[in-house]
Every structure is written in C-alpha cells, then in structure tokens.
Computed example of a mutant assay.
Amino acid sequence: MTALPYRCALIVGAGTGISASVARQLAQSGVKVGVAARNVDKLAPLVEATGALAFAADASKPRDVDALFAQVDAQLGEPDIVIYNASLRASGPLAAVDPAAVEQSLAVTAFGAFLVVQQAAKRMEPRGHGAILLTGATAGVKGFAQSAAFAMGKFALRGLAQSAARELGPKGIHVAHFNIDGAVRSARRPDPADAADSTLDPDAIAQTYVSVLAQPRSAWSHEVDLRPWTERF
C-alpha cells in the first residue's frame, strides 16, 4: 500500500464497519492504531487482527475525551491521524420524539466530534502536521423526515469540518469530511441478490480514506462524497 506520512492513528467511535476497515488498512500501511468505543469488548476481533490498542471512552463526555487522549499519548504516542466515526440516531416524528434522546444524539454526533477535534488540534498545531477525518452521512447534506436529530448532528459535523479545515489547513493539518451517501454493506445488510454493489463496501470506503491521507498538500481534498453507482443524489 502507499506509504503514508503518518505514524499513529486514533479512531473514535470504532466498530465493525467503516472504522474496522480503516483500522485494518492503516495497520497494513505500518501505522500504529488505537481504537476507541464505549464498549471495547466488541473490538476484540479487530484488536487481534490488527494489533491495535483499544480504549474505552464516551466521546460525548469531556473528561472521557481528555483521558482518552492522555492514554493514547502514553501508550501509542501523540496521534497524527484522528478519525471521528461516532454517531447516534434518535428517530421519530417531531411532535413525539424524546427531547432527551435528541440531546444525546447531538452530544455524540456533534459535540463529541468537537471535543475530539479540539484535542487533536492541541497536539497537531505545535508540530504543524496531522490529519483529522470526519465521517459524515447523507443527513449532513439533506435532512429526512422523522430524522431531525441525526440531520442536526451531521449538519453540525460538516460545519465543524469546514471551519476546522479553514483554520487548521494553513497550519499544516489536513481536515477532510466524508459524506457516506448510501447504505454501508455489512453481514446484517448485504447487497440484494438482484442489485450487486448497490451498497457501499466498507473496505472500498477505507481505501478512499487512506488515499486522502496520502494526498500531497498542494492538492488536498476537504470534502469527499462516496456513494454506490446506483444511489440517487
């Protein structure tokens, strides 16, 4: 795989889909990888396959995020790649959806991203080097009915990415937002038998993440749309 100008990655909101594929491809590129989630037990197969270190953290809580980065600094070294993949849905009609669920959705999808980007910036700015990648969704471009909370969170995430790119890019830090515009393939959501490649392959998504990390700074991508060839947009 292409040599990357980075040595240590932290993926926040790790699971079995996009983040696992990114972790595998980064490890194959020789990058040390840390993966963080509220439930680290589910990460055991990924840790065994990649040699990644797992960290327990709730990204919506400032103390957890502070402690997470301190642990990563001590056990892996300061990360020069930080990827935010966490999100939480709270679906339902506007007149009926639970406000507490909406608050938690925003806390994970948007506020948690801010906390993680802030910690990443503190470490990357003094070195003038690093990459921050944020996993978005269709909901960050258009809001769907009965999905206001997720749209609010993903719109905020996209705004954070744009602001961070404009502030940190001139300081040598590559910030990119990925609009995952379609369903992501998984064991629970395979392609329909009559519609091959109608969902996004997480390994293919990860390939794009790694390709963006390899970009020279004279031609950085700041927003990338990824969708299956059959997806309407």
Rank of each mutant, 00 (worst) to 15 (best):
A44W: 13
L53M: 12
G143N: 10
L106M: 15
A44E: 15
A67K: 00
A96T: 15
Q75F: 09
I18C: 04
A49F: 10
A37T: 11
A100S: 15
K61S: 00
A95C: 04
N39S: 15
A49K: 14
P79D: 03
K61F: 00
A206E: 11
V210Q: 03
D203R: 10
A110P: 08
I132W: 03
D98V: 06
A110V: 03
M152H: 03
Q162M: 11
S186D: 08
F69K: 04
F69W: 02
A187Q: 14
A95T: 14
Q28R: 15
H174N: 05
K42L: 08
D73G: 07
S105Y: 03
A131K: 02
G172C: 07
K171D: 02
K61P: 00
K154P: 06
A161N: 08
P93C: 00
A156G: 15
V22F: 07
S19W: 12
S91W: 01
G77T: 06
R89V: 14
G112E: 06
M124W: 04
H174A: 09
T50Y: 11
W220Q: 12
A36P: 03
I173F: 11
P190V: 13
S29Y: 03
N179S: 13
G153Y: 07
R63P: 00
A149G: 07
F55Q: 06
G51T: 13
V31R: 03
V31C: 05
A54S: 14
P216V: 04
G169P: 12
A59K: 00
L213W: 01
R227G: 02
H177T: 05
V102D: 06
D66A: 10
L4D: 01
T50W: 11
V175D: 07
L4C: 08
I11H: 14
A59I: 12
R123Q: 06
I173G: 01
D66L: 06
G153Q: 09
V82G: 04
R127H: 12
G92W: 02
A196N: 00
R217V: 12
R166Y: 08
Q71M: 02
A148D: 03
S105K: 00
S147H: 09
Y84F: 15
A49M: 12
A70L: 04
P190I: 13
N39E: 14
Q25D: 08
V35C: 12
A56M: 01
R24V: 05
A151E: 06
L43H: 08
L53V: 13
A193Q: 13
A44R: 15
